[in-house]
Nucleic acid binder design. Structure first.
Lengths: 112, 112
DNA sequence: CTGCTACTTAGACACCTGTCGAATCAAGGA
DNA sequence: TCCTTGATTCGACAGGTGTCTAAGTAGCAG
């Protein structure tokens, strides 16, 4: 019945320890903005698993610096990663980070 | 292959629509604070499925009004609900809200 | 009614955040 | 070399957030 080592048990099964809460909160915080949520989704669902910034800016009524700011927040949270290749900068998601959040919110422990 | 009606497809499978992002972001935002994360977890994992405020305040080095404030944020986001019974106020989680967030972050569509 | 306990609301204040325009950096052609 | 395009950084500013103290509300017991 009990299985989790404490690091990945869902939030509902046992009280989150202080350190884990401090670790997870910034990730949720990064997701707490509709622009960032859509950015993450656009990147994640983009063909090839990665997207150029130029693929993203068009989807919003925001200036390039603002998009850049949101991408930085997502990257510093560890939800996405990026690399420059020639003229363009490409972004892709970090699946383990998303999976961890999903698991924490799951109603019961998910078998790994 | 495709199954989701658009309302619950995971973030990675197709771009989040504008409205859905606007709907989800406040929930993630509410989770974006370590105190609230621990509060939610304490409530969710408490025996009986609900917790009195008096069960919660002791776990933090914060004043009662601050705890009250965080509980209000969680409640307004729809993550928890509350009721006064006599002298005490009880809180419990709203499982569908958590499940929805978990599903959105899941690597692939979860069979309902 | 008076007082006591549990909790919430109100007001204040330092700090953080989302957005923009302007400037800057990086890479690739003329 | 200089110019153009793609993207980030900087500086500023309105508005939001977490925390506190003080004050208020709700129920219970004399």
């Amino acid at each position: 019945m009990v299985e989790a080592p404490g690091c990945c048990a869902p939030l509902v099964s046992e009280p989150l320890r202080d350190g884990e809460a401090a670790e997870l909160a910034p990730l949720f915080k990064a997701l707490g903005d509709p622009v960032r949520l859509r950015l993450l989704s656009l990147i994640a669902s983009h063909a090839g698993g990665e997207a150029c910034v130029c693929d993203l800016t068009g989807a919003f009524d925001l200036t390039a610096p603002t998009i850049s700011h949101h991408l930085k927040v997502l990257r510093q949270a560890g939800l996405i990663d990026s690399e420059r290749r020639g003229t363009w900068v490409y972004y892709w998601i970090n699946p383990p980070a998303l999976e961890r959040l999903s698991a924490v919110l799951a109603p019961r422990a998910v078998p790994v």
